[in-house]
Write a protein that binds this DNA or RNA. Structure first.
Lengths: 341, 341
DNA sequence: CTGAAAGCGCTTACAG
DNA sequence: CTGAAAGCGCTTACAG
């Protein structure tokens, strides 16, 4: 009998059921080698007693835990929050817990991987947009390889130099679609609020845009891949010539490289008294859930965060353990923030 | 020597340093009883070898882990995402990991508490707005008491029936401030988009509003405490009389009981062609970060999510282990969504 | 199909 | 101040 208040242990269940520890363990984990009838009875007793597995003991004895470690830039960013939400929901259905950590620089990412390894999580997911960083890439690659060696599963979101299964949003296609939409509306002088070049998502979206836009892309500003970065881009565009309009007075559309940047851009444009879409059209990428309340609805290329979360789960917890990629298609969502020039 | 690729264990460090396991353990955890010089040397060797503690083993041997289990409704909700972000940031500074789980019903909450206990997390935080639910309250209370008994620390956000340290946003004061703001502008016919009465946050905000508004509160709708709930509230308000304006045609202001509800309300109002603040004023609560881009900026009562996250950390990881409350003050943020009627 | 026993990698009384 | 040893609660070869 366990002391009152103390958690019930496997041995308590074993004693009550009159079987060995091994039998209880096998019954509870649905491991083969126990007669179905006995297993069923043991499970019933465990449930009756309110037994809950000590995950630390299980992981210590059995290798890795079933939990998932998710590394992202910041959970306050709606893009990451929505991916995390999707992952948490589907992971819960499989009785898996999710640990979340922030990491901005490649050094942070490496440090977080080590921390997640110390918790013996069953999977590690790198969701922060893939920075290509030669300095840490080797160390990170080694760490992940060792982790994989020990049975851990890995997934990254976006193109990475790392050798791992990846969820690949079609950033190039999405870039093309945004560009085609603006061209179709008649825009021929377009500014792009871009982010750091080392971010693969930035590079790919730019590539798609450039392919279609060509010389219609008359201005590119580079700032952080964040809300504040979007605001800075607009300030750069309108900076010295506030009264007279944007630096390139002929600009009729602004492409932000993410919805989050578009939010920052929108906020700044409104502060400047610029009306959307009358004065200027604005677009984003991702289709985060607030996109439809930005301006009269933000036109954007959806790269479903829901699907990304599900794909992460599939790659890290699915039956198929082979290294592979899952592509996420885009959908152009036309809303009120774009119009003819 | 450890096999190549395998994680380094405490015994590897002990062997290399020529000391016992106990000495290494004490050095690494800064437990007293090791000469400072030796401890320093051992720490250096551990660092050189790239040693990382196996958290599962530590928790098994030592009791609870240092990680924090955070239960919330849904991390995709910006309010929770921002609280989580704040908590993760401050927890990381203290080398603590955060696990996040979704729970909507009181039964979900109870189930999640059990799961977090099975991971032996060092703290459990209930951030979902406190439902008063007599049916599960007893069971949940027992579970938490047992957890506390075993050394776990607990914090809740908002008023709960549960006996635990709480972060208490001043919802009543915030309600009063919103009401006073609208009254000062001259509004005398006000609708409130409310949520489920069992939510203490809802009750408290209503109380503050009612105190000041009195009979100026001419309509109350009750829907989910979510974005969709806000939209439904507006549909109820304008439902059958779309062409003629809101059901109560004299209404000049709408108070949503949270920013997230206000977002839903805003979206629906725009779809109906209602202009803010010309046709109607709109307010929220919390001041989530997108609030300033809703309409011409949403007037709201800030209950800083940043401070809430920090307060959670203080209650669950601070020196002071006494059961106590931390109050979060409000700040009225006046933006473009409110004007004279 | 079932069980006895070793072992996962730590922490912490208990001795000295 | 330092160490030998027991024990945390599981899983999993190894026997039978």
């Amino acid at each position: 009998m366990p002391e009152a208040g103390l958690p019930i242990r496997l041995s308590d269940v074993a004693a009550r059921a009159g079987v060995s520890l091994a039998t209880v363990s096998r019954s509870l984990t649905n491991t083969s080698g126990v007669s179905p009838a006995l297993a069923e009875r043991v499970r019933g007793i465990a449930a009756d007693m309110g037994y809950v597995t000590n995950m630390n003991a299980r992981s210590l004895a059995g290798g890795l835990a079933s939990s998932i470690g998710l590394v992202l830039t910041n959970i306050a960013d709606p893009y990451f929050a929505e991916i995390a939400s999707s992952l948490i929901a589907v992971a819960a259905d499989d009785s898996r817990s999710v640990q979340i950590a922030h990491a901005v620089t490649p050094e942070d990412v490496l440090a977080q991987i080590k921390i997640f390894r110390s918790y013996r999580v069953g999977a590690i997911v790198l969701a922060g947009s893939g920075y290509s960083d030669p300095a840490t890439e080797i160390a990170t690659g080694k760490e992940l390889a060792a982790y994989e060696q020990s049975g851990g599963r890995i997934a990254v979101v976006g193109r990475h130099a790392l050798d791992a299964s990846a969820v690949l949003p079609d950033n190039i296609g999405a870039g093309r679609a945004i560009a085609e939409h603006l061209v179709a509306l008649g825009h021929s002088k377009i500014a792009v609020l871009s982010g750091p070049e080392q971010l693969n998502a930035v590079g790919d979206r730019m590539r798609g845009l450039t392919e279609v836009l060509g010389s219609r892309m008359v201005h590119i500003s580079q700032h952080a891949f964040s809300r504040e970065g979007g605001a800075e881009g607009v300030r750069e565009l309108y900076g010295d010539t506030l009264v007279a309009g944007p630096r390139r007075r002929d600009i009729t559309a602004i492409v932000a490289l993410s919805d989050v940047m578009a939010v920052g851009a929108f906020s700044e444009l409104r502060a400047l008294g610029v009306t959307i879409p009358t004065d200027i059209s604005l677009t984003g990428f991702d289709d985060i859930s607030v996109a439809d309340v930005i301006s009269d609805g933000l036109t954007t290329a959806r790269l479903s965060t829901q699907h990304i979360g599900e794909a992460i789960f599939e790659l890290t917890c699915g039956e198929n353990t082979q290294r592979r990629d899952i592509e996420i298609g885009f959908t152009l969502i036309e809303r009120g923030s774009t119009a003819q020039p």
